[in-house]
Amino acid sequence: MQELALAMTGEEGRRLDSSELVLLLRRAKAGDVAAVEEILLRHERLVFRTAHRLLGSVEDAQDASQEVFLRLHQHLRCFDAERAVAPWLYRVTVNVCWDIAGKRKKDVPLESVELAAPAEQAADYSREEMKRVVQMALRRLPEKERAALVLRDIEGLPTGEVARVMGSSEATVRSQISSARLKIKRFADSFRGRIR
């Protein structure tokens, strides 16, 4: 578990040693705001990026990130050397995002999406355009498939860890990610067919 925590918290060269994390947690539990800020700095990208991919808007991602870190602060006593922060953060981020998404509009199924061609129609289907199409497709996936895809393909978590984060089985996650990948490919194909 600690090895996984090391792998999951290493962001932009800020690899977090487990003993360092324990020390930070101890200080944060004692009410040291500087330690809380340090934990925030080390994990904020992970939380924000995941929330942004799940919710599709910067404002919603900010709200979700705030809620996640406030929950982390409230549950600091639950963490120790044996319990890594990052898997917990992923799990809470997904749950918070689902709560927020539940209050927003319902998902629009990919099959019913009316595709709109981009403003500047280029003959070459560039990498940037492909990226934009994928972003559009991602927003229209059912939330569980989206979460599975974001955690597995964007965040790079192993399938087993994705299953733990989402509270489901590995078989279910495999089914969700394969379904999501196929939907995104079909969406991209149909979009490509329109602009060519």
Binding site: V33, E37, F48, R53, Q62, Q66, V134, I184, A188
Partner: peptide, 28 residues
């Protein structure tokens, strides 16, 4: 493979520092 490459590239996008700073400020 092509669509998956685009999916993975979403993880390479830099997060806006101002968005992170705003969250940090609110939490602290």
């Amino acid at each position: 493979k092509e669509s998956q490459a685009a999916v993975r590239s979403l993880g390479e996008e830099e997060v806006a520092a101002i968005a992170l700073a705003s969250v940090r400020q609110r939490v602290l």
